[in-house]
Design a protein around this nucleic acid. Sequence first.
DNA 1: CCAGCCATGTGGTCGGACCACTACGGTCAG
DNA 2: CTGACCGTAGTGGTCCGACCACATGGCTGG
Lengths: 237, 237
Amino acid sequence: MDETPSEAAPQKGTVTQRAIERIKAMIAEGRLEPGQRLPTERDLAAQLGISRSSMREAIRALTVLGVLEARHGSGIYVTQLEAGDLLETFGVVADLSRGPRLVELLEVRRILESTATALAAARITEDQLAEVEKHLTAMNGTDDPEEIIAHDLAFHREIAAAAGNETMAAILEGLSSRTFRARVWRGYQEEGAFARTRREHAAIHRALLAHDPEAARAAAAAHVGEVEQWLRTQLRE
Amino acid sequence: MDETPSEAAPQKGTVTQRAIERIKAMIAEGRLEPGQRLPTERDLAAQLGISRSSMREAIRALTVLGVLEARHGSGIYVTQLEAGDLLETFGVVADLSRGPRLVELLEVRRILESTATALAAARITEDQLAEVEKHLTAMNGTDDPEEIIAHDLAFHREIAAAAGNETMAAILEGLSSRTFRARVWRGYQEEGAFARTRREHAAIHRALLAHDPEAARAAAAAHVGEVEQWLRTQLRE
DNA sequence: CCAGCCATGTGGTCGGACCACTACGGTCAG
DNA sequence: CTGACCGTAGTGGTCCGACCACATGGCTGG
């Protein structure tokens, strides 16, 4: 009954899993270009000889991975496959990690963020620098935790963007998910560590302004390192 | 008609998307522990007031993200939520990235791998060192590309493991996916760059043996940097 | 007491129906 | 001729019910 002319699909795993691999392969081989529209769910299911339900699960899976994008009433499209698309799911890692894993996550962030900040110091333009300053002053001029977190995030995002490596910026973005940030800031702020954070941010900004990579690297590493150490002590309790 | 006693679910996005968020929230809030078994698909669907089909799509999505694990005939379980579970999907990024993105990926890997190797030099044990040596000699003693890649991967994996940061090791694992490695090695080997790679691996091993972090960092950075530069020139053609 | 079988419950797959939305084209007033 | 409006075909989104494949635990028979 399996009259699939293309190739004989051997039994391995679920049909949905196979469908996921097939579509991934099609993209990897270049048979599906970024932005391109796929056949309809019904056609795709027919092509692979599976039911529409199973095909939908495969599509949903690739959707959450940032590979495909489904537009209701229009069709299914391949994303641009840019760093941001594919690494968006990285945020769930930070959201669901706890305990020692959070420290490891911060350690990775410290390594990447310090390098990114160093690169940014060498490459940042006047416009980008102005943007960084904007978030810095905005962060210092409000008491609303929500707003502080938002500007803190944007501050580092601008710097990561100035480093010129979109992939690194996307990873850092995921590493500093909103919920993760919020969890830290809550307890962090309670012990009046905000003033120190402010100084650290100022130091980073100063290094960027001076286009001094090594100073920037040190300042960023110290900044993340502080949070890292704080979290480490929190875990001991 | 929406008699969901727990809470009034406002209309936002698809029901499947909402189900995904709900389950993720349950885990984040600790209402679902790692390893714990979830209610059946049918029960879950009833609880959230959606159909089993939609619930299955949500489960499938969380499965590919490494958050849930479905065991046919047994039930659905929360994974251990360890770094490896959640970062397994990271491999698709390397598989689907092309062109300039690959260089960026390698740049990230260079940063992380050099730091990981430096940490490993300080912390590696005799047993781990022996394991590293095993893969090093095995890699030099065969001509089968498949085997070479496998041992090359294992070589770096052992080092990353010795660094003591599971999260970093998992990210590096994803960054050096099998298909990515294969693509590079193919063209890489054609121009007889294997001898150089051999020397670079030896240098890394030497630094580990001497427990010299700085030498290890430099050797690892140079090693990845070579591949990076090679890829960069490839892209210009 | 133990090995093997079998009923039950679970995830996996299927097919079809209908809904919600988009996109496109034709229609009709201006 | 131009433009806004509207209808329709086609798409993804949701639901339902049935059946299959597999794992588990208890029961049966030795």
